[in-house]
Design a protein around this nucleic acid. Sequence first.
DNA 1: GTTTCATGGAACTTTTATTGTTACATATAG
DNA 2: CTATATGTAACAATAAAAGTTCCATGAAAC
Lengths: 145, 145
Amino acid sequence: MKRSSRLSIALHALVHLHAQPDKQLSSAALATCLMTNPVVVRRILGELREADIVEASKGPNGGWTLSRPATEITLRDVYAALGERMLLRTESDPGDTTCAIVRSVDRVMHDFLNDAEALLAARLQRVRLSDLATEALHAGFPRLD
Amino acid sequence: MKRSSRLSIALHALVHLHAQPDKQLSSAALATCLMTNPVVVRRILGELREADIVEASKGPNGGWTLSRPATEITLRDVYAALGERMLLRTESDPGDTTCAIVRSVDRVMHDFLNDAEALLAARLQRVRLSDLATEALHAGFPRLD
DNA sequence: GTTTCATGGAACTTTTATTGTTACATATAG
DNA sequence: CTATATGTAACAATAAAAGTTCCATGAAAC
């Protein structure tokens, strides 16, 4: 494993798509840039497609494009589309029924995490893909051919 | 793996210690209740010991006790003592220098996560071990012999 | 229509992190 | 001295995530 995560791969790919709105970037091209495998790219972007964030077209010169303007894509959208949790869950063994404390600890932690999750989602919603792209472009990024 | 986590094991153990302040509970006794291994208990409580949350004594009738009142132990203390992250990190391969976008994405995410981490810590600080124990005891928990 | 190049998706392997286990040294009460 | 506890290191097992291979399918170019 390269210590990447699906979210960072997704965001990286989306910035590339936004930077080259006229092109359809193939999974293979993206994979080269993201230093990963084309199938991994397809898996991740496939989930974003179901959330109407990207579109794919087959055949020669086919590939991926954004299906909405980058100003209308928030990090929360991407996060939700991936079905990921940013918070580590701390649940116990479901088969652990010996001790009632377990359930209490789990419940308190569960409530806390739900709260926290909502908090994070609200913050993620404030960041748009276009913001991220501006950041990236400002730092001077190398165009893809 | 049983899908437990160090934090939930730690909290579970601490509630037990709080519930029986007169006893020194051994790693083996706790392990039975937590459905895990004595060495795992020692590893986790060992980290809490370094943060002055628990104390251990050796020899017959030795074991673990809280080193402070449960009202003075917050979940943040426990969380910090374990050196855990509640947030999933989304960093990329450190060797990935091909594309400058990676660094930008990483930086934005890193800033965001630091913010979020502080937010969570503040919330964790508001929950005391005694609160958790009250919850657990209210649900009716089985005493250990 | 056929060729080419792309996605779609299943099945499998590899890698990484975490947890569990064994073994043994050390300390302490009785 | 002995029994019982922690402390720690080294190793094994397990589960999650990512990477890989393979082939079916669809769409564009010729």
